[in-house]
Amino acid sequence: MLYEREALDTPEWWQGLDEMIERQHEQYPESVQTALIPLLHYVQNAFGYVPEKAINHIAQALGVPTAYVCGVASFYSYFSLEPKGAFTISVCLGTACFVRGAQAILDEFCRQLDVEAGGTTSDRIFTVSDSSRCLGACGQAPVVMIDDDVHAKVVAQDVADIVAEYEARARREMQAREERARADARSHVQ
């Protein structure tokens, strides 16, 4: 979740990354580059994307050019170099989902959220993925994955409800966060 992710950019987090690099070095003494993809996963999991700062940091730690790290990160569709919305909507476009009408569902999400596939809504709540690969739940086709929730046998009419459900969740979380911030401020004053 984005709201928690932003709080991650702390010195302790970066220290944790350095420790991970250290461990990877020990595990794969064969070649320093071997650590690269696990490291990118680690960063992506934390931030939801791979920020420039992390690319520079990793390049320096592994002693490889920044361009090399960028090249690898941009090659794999799992890594994103752009910030994402709080929720990523992945409409599976595997063959089974496709023949059961997944394209129409993707179009419907894009229409309702007013974004292109691959885009993020202006309120940064949703990103509609344009590179969802088969999720392997073909028996339940067509499926839509939102973060780790899998919605099965979706039809275009469900889209509005799904969007509303996650919007409400995002609002609740934002509200909770603001309340926490206010409470923090109050305790500070006292």
């Binding site: 070649s31 580059q33 071997t34 650590a35 690269l36 993809i37 696990p38 990118l40 996963h41 690898v72 090659f75 794999y76 569709s77 799992y78 890594f79 590179s131 690969r133």
Partner: peptide
């Protein structure tokens, strides 16, 4: 772990990916 590249199912590409 892979990172979302279909071509990595090909054995020499898979090796390249494992090597970072």
């Amino acid at each position: 772990l892979g990172a979302g590249a279909f071509v990595c199912g090909e054995e020499t590409a898979l090796i390249a990916s494992m090597e970072g």
